[in-house]
C-alpha cells in the first residue's frame, strides 16, 4: 500500500512529461510536424486528405500547420501568466503567513480575489486596458494567484512552527537568511505543484478569452483558432476536425500539466478554482 501512490505518481509523471515534450517539440520545432507554413495558401475548406490531415480553413491555410504553430503562442502566454501568478502568489502567501497588519491586509486581499467573478472581470479589464499578449498575461495572472497564496501561506505557517525554525531564530540568524536559505527550499515542492496547476488554469482562462474573441490577434492561440473556426462556419462546412482539434490540444496540454503536478505532491490539491 505504501509504495502504490508513488508508483502511480511516477506513471502519470512519465505520461505528463511525454505529452508535454510533444507540445514543446511543436512549439520549438514546428517544422517536424508539418511541411507547410502557417500562412501558406491552398484551396478553401478542403476536406482532410493525405496532404492536409486536418483539412484547410476558411482562408485556405492548412489546419494542422495552424495548430502546430499555435502551440508556441498558447504555451508562451500560459507560462508567462503562470510565472507572474507564481511570483504574486508566493509573495502574498509569505506576507499573509506572518502576523500584524500587513498579514491581515493580504489575507483580505486574497479573500477578495477569490470571490471576484474571474471571467467577467477579465473581459471588462482587457476591454478597457487592451488585449496585447503581455497585458493579457498580466491580467490573467492577477486573477489566478490566490490558490498559490493559500498553499504557500499554509506551508510557511507549518514551517514556522517546526523546531528548526525556532532554533535558527535562537541562533541569531537574520530573518532574510532564514527566509531565503531555509524556508524557500522547503517551499519548492508546494511552489512547483502550484506552478504546474496554475499553468493549467492560465491556459484554460486564456483559451476561453480568446474563444470569445478577446485574445491577442497577432499571437493566435488555440482559443483564437476555435473562435474563428466557429464564427466562419466550420459547422456548416462540416469541418469538424478543424473545429475540435484545437480543443483537444488544450485538453491534452492541460492534462499534461496536471499529470506532472500529481507527482509534485499535489495529490490532495484539488483544481477547484
Amino acid at each position: 500500500m505504501a509504495d502504490k501512490p508513488i508508483r502511480r505518481g511516477t506513471v502519470s509523471f512519465a505520461l505528463g512529461t511525454a505529452l508535454l515534450a510533444l507540445f514543446a517539440a511543436a512549439a520549438f520545432f514546428p517544422g517536424i510536424f508539418t511541411p507547410w507554413g502557417r500562412k501558406e495558401l491552398f484551396g478553401l475548406w478542403e476536406a482532410p486528405s493525405a496532404l492536409h490531415p486536418l483539412g484547410t480553413n476558411y482562408l485556405g491555410y492548412d489546419v494542422l500547420a495552424e495548430l502546430v504553430y499555435g502551440a508556441r503562442d498558447t504555451v508562451v502566454i500560459g507560462l508567462l501568466s503562470s510565472v507572474i501568478s507564481l511570483a504574486l502568489g508566493a509573495a502574498a502567501g509569505v506576507i499573509s503567513a506572518g502576523e500584524g497588519r500587513a498579514a491581515a491586509l493580504f489575507s483580505w486581499i486574497t479573500q477578495l480575489f477569490i470571490m471576484l467573478p474571474r471571467l467577467v472581470s477579465l473581459i471588462v479589464l482587457s476591454a478597457f486596458w487592451g488585449s496585447e499578449r503581455a497585458k493579457l498575461a498580466l491580467l490573467i495572472a492577477l486573477f489566478s494567484w490566490t490558490g498559490t497564496a493559500r498553499a504557500v501561506r499554509a506551508q510557511v505557517r507549518h514551517l514556522k512552527a517546526q523546531p528548526f525554525a525556532e532554533a535558527l531564530e535562537l541562533l541569531g540568524y537574520s530573518r532574510a537568511r532564514i527566509a531565503l536559505r531555509h524556508m524557500l527550499p522547503n517551499l519548492s515542492g508546494v511552489l512547483l505543484s502550484r506552478f504546474l496547476l496554475s499553468v493549467n488554469s492560465c491556459i484554460m482562462m486564456e483559451s476561453t478569452l480568446s474563444f470569445l474573441g478577446m485574445g491577442d490577434i497577432y499571437h493566435p492561440t488555440w482559443g483564437t483558432m476555435m473562435n474563428l473556426a466557429y464564427r466562419r462556419g466550420a459547422f456548416i462546412r462540416r469541418a469538424y476536425l478543424y473545429l475540435m482539434a484545437p480543443g483537444a490540444c488544450v485538453m491534452l496540454l492541460s492534462l499534461a500539466f496536471y499529470l506532472m503536478s500529481v507527482r509534485a505532491g499535489a495529490r490532495k490539491e484539488i483544481i477547484s478554482q
Binding site: M204, T208, L252
Partner: peptide, 13 residues
C-alpha cells in the same frame, strides 16, 4: 481539462 467552450461545441456537434 476540457475547456467549457470545447465541451459545448462538442455537444453541439
Amino acid at each position: 481539462a476540457v475547456p467549457g467552450f470545447a465541451a459545448a461545441l462538442g455537444l453541439m456537434l
